Amino acid sequence: MLELLSWVIRIAHYYEYAIVIYILMSWLPGAQQSRLGQWLGRIVLPYLNLFRVIPPIGGMIDISPIVAILALNFAVSGLAHLVLLFV
């Protein structure tokens, strides 16, 4: 069971890195339209779109990726605590 938990935590960290890379790609012109950007978009955007309902601060700063990463971390942490509680 702990091996499975280890894999879930590792995958969540990789997904977090994918979110950060995709967001950083938005700063570079045309980077999200590249092959890597499109591939990351297919992986990351369905999850990020869940948090796009949060309006940007001041009309410019989108904090939804930060909230998405925090939610992912809370979910993984909660799952880890539940698993460790029953093991």
Rank of each mutant, 00 (worst) to 15 (best):
M1K: 09
M1F: 04
L2Y: 09
E3G: 08
L4I: 01
L5I: 03
S6W: 07
S6E: 12
S6L: 10
V8D: 05
V8W: 05
V8L: 15
V8E: 01
R10A: 15
R10V: 06
I11E: 14
H13V: 13
Y14Q: 04
Y14K: 02
Y15H: 03
Y15M: 10
Y15S: 11
A18V: 06
I19C: 12
V20P: 07
V20Q: 04
I21C: 12
I23Y: 04
L24Q: 04
L24D: 01
W27N: 02
W27P: 07
P29S: 13
G30A: 07
G30Y: 05
Q32D: 02
Q33I: 03
Q33K: 12
R35H: 01
R35V: 09
G37N: 01
G37K: 02
Q38Y: 05
Q38F: 05
W39A: 13
L40S: 01
I43R: 11
V44Y: 15
V44I: 00
V44T: 03
V44K: 08
L45W: 11
L45P: 07
P46D: 06
P46I: 03
Y47F: 15
Y47L: 05
F51T: 06
F51N: 01
R52A: 15
R52C: 03
V53N: 07
I54P: 00
P55C: 05
P56C: 12
P56W: 11
I57R: 08
G58C: 03
G58T: 06
G59Q: 03
G59L: 02
G59N: 08
G59D: 04
M60V: 15
M60I: 13
M60L: 14
I61K: 01
D62C: 06
I63H: 12
I63D: 10
S64I: 10
S64R: 06
A68D: 01
I69N: 00
L70G: 11
L70C: 10
A71V: 09
A71Q: 00
L72I: 05
L72V: 02
N73I: 13
N73Q: 15
F74L: 14
V76S: 14
V76K: 08
V76W: 11
V76M: 13
G78S: 08
L79V: 06
A80P: 00
H81R: 14
L82I: 11
V83N: 05
V83L: 13
V83D: 06
L84I: 02
L85A: 14
L85P: 07
L85S: 12
F86P: 02
V87M: 11
V87R: 12
